[in-house]
Design a protein around this nucleic acid. Structure first.
Lengths: 126, 126
DNA sequence: TTGACATATTCCGTTATAGGTATATAATAT
DNA sequence: ATATTATATACCTATAACGGAATATGTCAA
């Protein structure tokens, strides 16, 4: 009757929240790899790699293809688009905020350069 | 002696993996809000709102400002940029993949339109 | 079939989450 | 000081995530 934590396998947001999964996707982004190649490349234990691959598979972030006794995994990037799009929703905000930082810096520099002028009440703590 | 799971409150990826936190950011994106406004707006319990705000605060996704006995929260979007940038890393892949889907669809349409021509061995399961 | 290799799954232990309820802190008003 | 409003924190429970080790499945070779 209690919800604990959202399932990692529920959506790409959760799947990708795990840093190792991001790392795996990074490695796989270069091209199709067999499980053992990933194991070698990342230096993790094989079951761990398989388990993370399963999560990624369940949210559709990777594909598998069989080749003999190997299983070749590759990135299926489509589920990342919603993340990208969602973050983009806030893009204007962070740009605005970065601008404000920059403006503050410039104002400060101007003040320093121009010392001795009015200097009203104070910078405020905005 | 065992590591269980990376802390959710560690980075913005994790903070944002929780759907309610995304919802909260969505509400806050419109502008500064007091805790109770968020409570009313989302219909959650107040402690839940405070707790999620704390997580967002810890990863720097929101700011607080006091106003009398209220606490006004607002979005600090900067930590979303890394997420956006990371996802963008894969943009070419999903576009490529969408292109392939589109191309397959077009090829299929062309085949249907053009029925009766060569039709070699088969489409293959590339 | 038996054996070797490649990968997946199961079991276990530890940790941390998220929600709920109750309570604590902080600030204003009287 | 006390009451009231606004917000944060503590405690509890259930769930499930990760990692590790052992084991199961699957596939090819001889």
């Amino acid at each position: 009757m209690d919800m604990a934590r959202a399932r990692t396998t529920l959506d790409s947001f959760n799947a990708v929240a795990e840093p190792r999964r991001r790392q795996m996707l990074g490695v796989l982004a270069e091209g199709e790899l067999a499980v053992n190649d990933i194991v070698d490349s990342l230096g993790w234990h094989q079951p761990q790699v398989s388990k993370h691959l399963r999560v990624l598979l369940q949210v559709g972030l990777v594909r598998v293809r069989r080749d003999g006794r190997q299983r070749l995994y590759s990135v299926e990037a489509a589920p990342l688009k919603p993340i990208h799009d969602w973050a983009a929703t806030f893009e204007h905000l962070w740009q605005h905020q970065l601008d404000r930082v920059k403006q503050r810096a410039e104002a400060k520099a101007a003040l320093a350069r121009d010392r001795g002028s009015v200097l009203p009440g104070g910078p405020g703590k905005t």
